[in-house]
Amino acid sequence: MRDVELFLLDMDGTFYLGDKLIRGALEFLDVVKSQGKNFLFLTNNSSKGPRQYVEKLRRLGVNVDETHVFTSGEATALFLLERYGKTKLFLVGTKALEETLCSYGHTIEWRDPQLVVLGYDTEVTYEKLARACLLIRRNLPYIATHPDINCPSEEGPLPDTGSFIALIERSTGRLPDYVVGKPNSLMMQIVSKRFNLPTSKIAMVGDRLYTDMEFAIRSGAMAILVLSGETTREDFERSSTKPHLVVEDIAVLARMLERG
């Protein structure tokens, strides 16, 4: 880890769980700062925007601003701009995701959209899902913000965008044309340019093998798995995805980084 200059931190299951910081979270940031390294919260969870994440982190005692957060919702907005320009889209997503997409010049359209965007919608209704399926059957472009099947919570795993993808596939026979978030390397490309760093100087710290770790490995970054969220040690041992480092939680990682 001596060569790592930027740590990308997943949030749900890695830095906090629900409204509680995971053991060692603040200590890890202190060590990173003391060594002159950088960090960025990088999350697939598109149900909130950067502002909402900053508000939550500050409530938990983490002094950050919006430059310290990058979400799959933002990456989706940038992808749409590059691929389609400013678009009229039908959204299965939260008000916060709508706010994020509109801040990049996109508009939300119910009757005659150009494409469908599916995010982690904690405000989902049957009406929205039904309308999305009708539009997807018309062969409109169909974009998902990320593929996570579950979102960790204090009560246990909750259905995430990947579960909605499966539901829509059962109804329409279609999978998304493009899934923007981790493990897609698009987010890494944006981050690499923003910090002017090669991916070999970047580490991804996360709790999911099929998103966080695949994302790092595909992008040429260091893959650090924490076992404080979705992935259990048994999951890791059965998986063909092998991160560079596996630790119990971010507290262990902080001690390792401090020791050098």
Rank of each mutant, 00 (worst) to 15 (best):
I22C: 05
C133I: 08
T122M: 11
G105V: 13
A221K: 06
E5R: 03
E127N: 13
S228F: 01
E74V: 15
S72K: 02
T231F: 06
L89Y: 02
W110Y: 13
E258L: 01
R233A: 13
S46E: 09
N184H: 06
P147I: 02
M256A: 08
M213E: 10
S239L: 11
L78S: 02
P159L: 15
P141S: 00
P183F: 10
P176K: 12
R259T: 08
D12S: 13
V54Y: 09
I22H: 04
R208M: 05
P141T: 05
I168M: 09
T199V: 01
L80F: 06
P176M: 12
L78G: 05
T76C: 12
V179A: 11
L89M: 07
K56Q: 15
T100A: 12
S163Q: 07
Q114M: 02
S72G: 04
R2W: 04
E5L: 06
E66A: 14
L91M: 08
L225I: 07
P141Q: 03
E154S: 07
G156R: 06
K56S: 13
L175H: 08
L80S: 09
F195H: 01
G61S: 09
G260V: 03
H106N: 12
V191Q: 01
G18H: 04
S185D: 03
I250D: 09
N184D: 13
C102M: 13
D177C: 05
E5Q: 11
V64P: 05
R51L: 13
V180H: 07
F15E: 11
P159S: 11
L225R: 08
G24W: 01
T211E: 10
M187L: 14
K88D: 15
P147S: 05
S228Q: 00
G85E: 09
P50W: 01
S200R: 03
D207F: 05
D207Y: 10
T94W: 00
K88W: 13
S185N: 05
T122I: 15
G49E: 01
E5P: 00
E99G: 10
A221G: 07
N45E: 11
Y53I: 14
I108R: 00
M204P: 10
R58K: 14
G85V: 06
R218K: 14
I165S: 04
P243N: 08
T94Q: 01
E214W: 10
S228Y: 05
R59Q: 13
M1E: 08
P183G: 10
L118W: 01
D65V: 12
K193N: 15
P157R: 03
D235F: 01
P176Q: 08
Y53D: 10
A251M: 01
D148P: 00
V117T: 15
R170S: 15
K20N: 12
P113W: 11
L245V: 05
L197W: 08
G156P: 01
V31S: 02
I217A: 04
R83L: 03
I108Q: 07
D19C: 00
N139T: 02
